[in-house]
Design a protein around this nucleic acid. Structure first.
Length: 105
DNA sequence: AACCTGACGGACA
DNA sequence: CTGTCCGCCAGGT
C-alpha cells in the first residue's frame, strides 16, 4: 500500500474529528476540506487503509442513510456498519435513516 | 494525456 | 414514493 495522497490525508483527518455517537454526511466532510465533490470523499473512504482509527462508519449519505462500508455498498457490509453505529448509541428510525440529532452541526 | 469509475447529491419525471 | 440523469473531482489504468 502506498502512502495516502494529500487529499486522502485531509479526508481522514476530517473524519477523525467526528466524535462517537455523532455522524456527518459525505457532503459535510467535503465542505470541511474545501472539496466540491462528496463523491471524491467517498472514494477516499472507500480506500481507507486505517480501518478502525479513522471512523469511516460515522460518515453517511445526505439522506441520512448508510451508503457503504468496508470497501463495498453491499447489504452485509451496511448491516455491520449499522450495528457498529447502534453500539455507539446512534438511533435509526423505521426507515433506516439516522435520527437528526446525531448529525454534526 | 485520455478515459473510465465511484461508499455522492440534487433535480426531475 | 421510485428510477434516471448529470455535475462533480480524485485515482487508477
Amino acid at each position: 500500500m502506498n502512502p495516502p495522497t494529500e487529499f486522502e490525508s485531509r479526508v481522514y483527518a476530517a473524519v477523525s474529528r467526528i466524535p462517537a455517537s455523532r455522524v456527518a454526511t459525505y457532503g459535510q466532510v467535503a465542505q470541511w476540506i474545501g472539496c466540491g465533490s462528496p463523491r471524491a470523499v467517498g472514494g477516499a473512504l472507500r480506500r481507507n487503509p486505517f480501518a478502525p482509527e479513522v471512523p469511516c462508519h460515522r460518515v453517511v449519505g445526505a439522506d441520512r442513510r448508510l451508503k457503504g462500508f468496508f470497501g463495498s455498498a453491499g447489504s452485509t457490509a451496511l448491516d455491520r456498519k449499522r450495528r457498529l453505529l447502534e453500539s455507539e448509541g446512534v438511533a435509526f428510525d423505521n426507515h433506516g435513516r439516522i435520527h437528526t440529532d446525531h448529525l454534526m452541526p
